[in-house]
């Protein structure tokens, strides 16, 4: 019978409409920004630099080895190496980045910098509400804005950060035994 198919479709629509009041599965939208879905542990957005202790300058894990700068596919990282050295977390004297810039308007959140970093110094952030009024300067992140504490890292990626910490502690232990 002509028209039966349309009526059948209408019945589906009606069921979805009424069902959306009772079943979360049938809901389509979340009323952002009042409601927010929690971000998953693995969520990644833009990179930041991790520092230990309370001092963003002295505790910075980055040793300016420039591997991330080289591997970054869209080439959004700029590092200028220091001339002098400062002690790292194993109190071994290391270079540090005099300039560390990431242009996050170019960054494509691929996480390759995190994977290639041998010093666990660069990690992915979860902040995503980053719109700025300025066209160029606002999204060019300098070292002071990129540096975030290990405590913050623990807050956003609890499981991953714990794993990283245990790996670093192991490395420190192994080094102690050697000397």
């Amino acid at each position: 019978m002509i028209g039966l198919g349309i009526l059948n479709g209408m019945a589906v629509t009606l069921r979805n409409f009424i069902g959306s009041y009772f079943e979360n599965d049938r809901l389509i939208t979340v009323q952002y920004p009042e409601e927010r879905d929690p971000l998953p542990e693995n969520y990644r957005n833009f990179p930041f630099l991790v520092f230990d202790t309370d001092d963003a300058e002295a505790g910075l894990r980055c040793v300016a080895c420039k591997i991330c700068e080289k591997e970054c596919p869209p080439q959004c990282i700029l590092i200028v190496k220091s001339e002098d050295k400062k002690p790292d977390y194993l109190s071994k004297p290391q270079f540090y980045p005099r300039v560390f810039d990431i242009d996050i308007s170019v960054c494509m959140s691929c996480q390759i910098c995190v994977e290639v970093c041998p010093f666990e110094a660069i990690k992915m952030d979860k902040v995503f509400e980053l719109s700025r009024r300025e066209r160029f300067g606002g999204l060019l992140m300098h070292k002071d804005r990129l540096a975030k504490s290990n405590t913050y890292y623990h807050q956003i990626h609890p499981l991953e950060a714990a794993e990283v910490d245990s790996r670093l502690a192991e490395a420190a232990e192994a080094k102690k035994k050697k000397t």
Binding site: G3, L4, G5, I6, N8, G9, A11, V12, T13, R15
Partner: peptide, 11 residues
């Protein structure tokens, strides 16, 4: 559900 919505729809 999707099949019911579309497959037999005359239009």
């Amino acid at each position: 559900e999707f099949e019911r919505l579309i497959v037999s729809n005359e239009i």
